[in-house]
Amino acid sequence: MSPQDGPPHVVVRPADRPGDLGWVVMAHGECYAEQFGWDGEFEAMVARIVADYAAGHDPAREGAWIAEVDGERAGCVFLVAADEPGTAKLRTLLVTPKARGLGLGNRLVEQCLDLARAAGYRRVTLWTNSLLVSARRIYEAHGFTLADESPHHSFGHDLVGQNWTLDLA
């Protein structure tokens, strides 16, 4: 897009169109392989998250969103119920490299937190890896705090996994 075209048209909408869920899996696989060299184990994990959501979610308490820039998918996020009562999990936040810097990550996280509050969740948690610095900045800006971290070998690499928590009460 050239500057004379004006600002990009950005929309955040429910992930309810044909191809949305498949795009989430594909985009994660492609972006993380390209940026970090992560292997198919990561894409398989995202596919399980998406499949669990697709197999049955409570629309009053769980949601998935797609961010579009000029009509093209450019980001996503899910909010799902955790095993612990009163707790939701933020999952699969992604903004494609060409769409970064437009505030999509913040808008997607806001969608999750709006639903979490409306659904009466007391806490939202998420798991990420320490090298995902931009995502961590978004989480911190929304009030998430680091609960714990531990090294692990996943996706073909030695990583540091982190659990983050946001108390909504």
Rank of each mutant, 00 (worst) to 15 (best):
C76A: 06
V77F: 06
E84C: 03
G86R: 00
G86Y: 14
T87I: 03
T87M: 00
R91M: 07
R91E: 10
L94W: 04
L94D: 12
L94Q: 14
A99G: 10
R100G: 10
G101K: 00
L102V: 11
L102I: 15
G103M: 01
G105C: 05
N106E: 09
Q111P: 02
L113H: 05
D114H: 01
D114M: 00
L115H: 08
A116T: 02
A118R: 02
Y121P: 00
Y121N: 01
Y121H: 02
R122C: 03
R122G: 05
V124P: 08
T125K: 11
T125F: 01
L126M: 14
L126H: 00
W127V: 06
L132C: 04
L132R: 02
V133F: 15
S134E: 01
S134D: 14
S134G: 09
A135C: 05
R136F: 04
R136G: 15
I138A: 01
Y139F: 00
A141L: 09
A141S: 13
H142D: 10
H142M: 12
A147S: 12
P151T: 02
F155W: 01
F155A: 02
H157E: 04
V160P: 14
V160S: 03
G161Q: 06
G161P: 15
Q162A: 14
N163K: 09
N163R: 11
N163Y: 13
T165Q: 08
